[in-house]
């Protein structure tokens, strides 16, 4: 049996269903991500696990052997890191970190070593006496993490913990959170709307939409095999074509599926005049024209137009890939094995 079992959890706010009979299970020591757009119910699910939001009758949350559905937040033994950190402004870093231990009645002699260890783990040595307003966003987030971890919770809940930070710090903290999680082997639920973040940190991703879990899988599975149009559009910049659009683009196809997803990086562009190299055994070459070009750093994103529709194509930005000018007629080469059929 899995370590965390969530069974048919529902939540309604007046007439709006925020969670619709959600069931999921998490293994011990696993980091799962709840990924979805704003309003999909991911944060509500997290708050239900924490006991900060009541669930409708019939739902059940079991952690280990304990049914925690009706327990008060303080009795659940869950740690939570909020998006806004929620550090106590009147306490310094040390005070914030040992608050939970004091509340649980742990004696100073006993918790001193634990607090010191966690300060080292989150790399806050030397900042113990600083107050939250004297710390940077990244440091505040580390304090919030340390404060939740030091009480040794059964599950750690992270509610969009990095969304208020700038891109560079966010990336380094993603790696750090993953390192700490693996070092402590703590079962973790991470909520985010950033697909790149989800792909970076997770063991498994649970994609949510309108209060339902629409796909579960490892980052690789989710990215390479989106199960639906929603997942394909949300997880990457997939070109999603209805069956009729696909037929218009490449002619008759034998594959089953109502729609098809094609990743922009699997399509290649061959300038007209190089028709021979544009031919491929297992795929299609489509005549088209480059309509726009955007430099994204490591890739160049082209918007390419055929007679029927516009497609996005990503080309690696290397010195031997010459930039194709807007208005250039090209062949778009689409490998058949990279067309993912969707339900």
């Amino acid at each position: 049996m899995s370590y965390v079992q969530i069974d048919r959890l529902s939540k309604r706010f007046k007439e709006t269903t925020v969670l619709n009979q959600v069931s999921l299970s998490i293994e011990k020591g696993e980091l799962i991500t709840l990924l979805g757009p704003s309003g999909c119910g991911k944060s509500t699910l997290l708050r239900c696990i924490a006991g900060l939001t009541e669930v409708e009758d019939g739902g059940k949350i079991v952690v280990g052997d304990t049914n925690i559905t009706q327990l008060a937040p303080k009795a659940r033994e869950v740690g939570m890191v909020f998006q806004s950190y929620a550090l106590f402004p009147n306490m310094n870093v040390y005070g914030n970190i040992c608050f939970g231990l004091k509340m649980k009645g742990v004696k100073k002699e006993e918790y001193k070593e634990r607090v010191e260890r966690i300060i080292d783990l989150v790399d806050l040595r030397g900042r113990e006496n600083s107050y939250p307003h004297q710390l940077s966003g990244g440091q505040q987030q580390r304090v919030a993490l340390a404060r939740s971890l030091v009480v040794e919770p059964k599950i750690l809940l992270l509610d969009e913990p990095l969304s208020a930070l700038d891109a560079k710090i966010r990336k380094s903290l993603q790696t750090e959170i993953r390192r700490i999680q693996q070092e402590l082997s703590i079962t973790t639920v991470f909520v985010t709307h950033d697909q790149e973040e989800a792909l970076t940190v997770s063991d498994r991703i649970f994609v949510m939409d309108h209060g339902n879990i629409v796909q579960i899988g490892t980052p690789k599975e989710i990215y390479a095999h989106p199960a639906s149009e929603f997942v394909a559009r949300f997880i990457g910049n997939y070109n999603v074509l209805k069956r009729a659009e696909m037929v218009q683009l490449v002619g008759e196809i034998v594959m089953a599926g109502d729609a098809f997803a094609i990743r922009p990086e699997v399509i290649s562009l061959v300038p007209r005049g190089n028709e021979a190299s544009a031919q491929s055994k297992n795929g299609w070459s489509v005549e088209s024209v480059v309509r726009s070009m955007t430099l994204k750093g490591n890739v160049i994103r082209y918007e390419v137009e055929t007679n029927h529709q516009k497609m996005q194509v990503d080309v690696l930005n290397t010195s031997d890939n010459h930039w194709i000018r807007v208005g250039t007629p090209v062949f778009m080469r689409i490998p058949a094995e990279e067309c993912i059929p969707l339900q």
Binding site: K74, F82, A86
Partner: peptide, 20 residues
């Protein structure tokens, strides 16, 4: 200003009673 609701939630999750 201090976002009292979030602070109370954080404190309760860390084992504090409402009074604490």
């Amino acid at each position: 200003t201090i976002d009292a609701i979030k602070l109370v939630e954080a404190a309760e999750l860390l084992g504090a009673s409402r009074m604490q």
